[in-house]
Design a protein around this nucleic acid. Structure first.
Lengths: 224, 224
DNA sequence: CGCATAGTTCGTTCCTCATCGAAGCATTCT
DNA sequence: AGAATGCTTCGATGAGGAACGAACTATGCG
């Protein structure tokens, strides 16, 4: 009966279906209001509100008040990583479906993870960027290579500024079990993809589907 | 209200204090009997038995029957990884203790993670092995370098055989937030450390404490 | 065979906690 | 100011599940 960090407390927060649905929804990266999360979780507003205050108290969420709207978001990448890890186990031990649904396929290829792109496409992209020495990888640490600033500037992404958040960060992918690119650069790239309309977000899902020309453009710019 | 892998189911299994204690105990790597786990969790035998069957049904544990003894163990590295991830969050958001207990310090330096060494020492070791090109790291993938077989043979560790489990594997460290070495090689190294009595396991804890001469020997062999 | 040890199953008790309706604040719009 | 929207708090209800004692099964020992 040893004492350590209270993992039961954290796990039980995720362990309620309503809260799990909310957290899953927030893995999409955009902060959501209490009403949206209530809908997402399939519970009434009072119930959702109660869950949200528990998640807040547990330190899993952040809150940004804007007028009468209150936007809830994941507390950070570490929390997102934990949820990915749990998802991985659930996926592995879960009931093996006869055939993975089409949405599952799309999720494997490309999806939103917190605020950046995940899935096979994202893993391949990071591999290529490292291969071309635009990024330098050393374990979890990813740094900008010498040509990075000019390379991304040409695409219209400014990596020169030094924000509080790290520019590059590795994030473990549950479907491929390898890392993809997170951090402000990862977020900027996802923005770019959606802004250029190379891909659109699947309704009510974290899946990201590329249009055929969009995929070509993406590959030309980031993998080429 | 989207459907995905049932993360609430998995998280709620970890979310009960008794079960969390059991899982924590099993993070020590050695399989334990129901009675030992009951003691560990601070519950009666029937209660423990009930919890264990739930964990089994959830796919988090494996069972090895030996006569009238039934040894429970973690189902695999993925489960261990998930628990580390949850531990990391719990550690981060948990009540900041005024001063970290002495055992916590020891845990940070070196501890057992499933079947291999984790903590600062383990992270440093992996760094050095990569630096010396004995191991080659490429993202999550860690491969043996050209000199690896002879290098480890000299220490008395055979990495030539090709077992089912991967020889090398990266495992994320919750205290240092960097990777350390898992896989059969990681397990063999931990065996070596304990066999040579360079270190001993702290009673009732995952902590591993090196004796002064043991630490020297370890550093000579693996960091030198 | 009979006794001891290891573990599971059963039935009961009890308590936590998820849920929702109604009412209460707060902010914005007109 | 008054009405409407977004959200939280309160109170009551109900269900799930954690707990243990007692009885039952299985293995090992003399």
């Amino acid at each position: 009966m040893r004492e350590g960090p209270d993992i039961a407390r954290i796990a039980s927060l995720v362990g309620d279906p309503a809260r799990a649905n909310m957290l899953n929804a927030l893995m999409g990266g955009t902060a959501l209001t209490a009403s949206e999360l209530a809908l997402e979780a399939g519970v009434s507003l009072p119930t959702a509100s109660s869950h949200l205050s528990k998640l807040m108290e547990g330190g899993l969420l952040t809150l940004a008040s804007q007028g009468r709207h209150r936007y809830y978001g994941l507390a950070g990448p570490q929390v997102a990583g934990m949820i990915e890890a749990i998802t991985g186990v659930a996926e592995a031990v879960g009931p093996k479906r006869v055939r993975p649904g089409p949405r599952d396929g799309a999720m494997r290829v490309a999806r939103v993870c917190y605020d950046h792109l995940a899935g096979e496409q994202a893993v391949t992209m990071l591999d290529r960027l490292v291969e071309k020495d635009i990024l330098l990888r050393d374990d979890k640490e990813i740094r900008l290579g010498p040509s990075a600033v000019s390379h991304f500037a040409a695409i219209g992404i400014d990596v020169g500024a030094k924000p509080r958040r790290p520019v590059c960060r590795a994030c473990l992918d549950w479907s491929v079990r390898r890392s993809h690119l997170a951090g402000t650069l990862g977020a900027a790239i996802l923005d770019k993809i959606l802004l250029e309309k190379w891909a659109r977000r699947e309704k009510d899902s974290r899946a990201v589907v590329f249009s055929p020309p969009g995929k070509q453009a993406f590959e030309r710019v980031f993998l080429g």
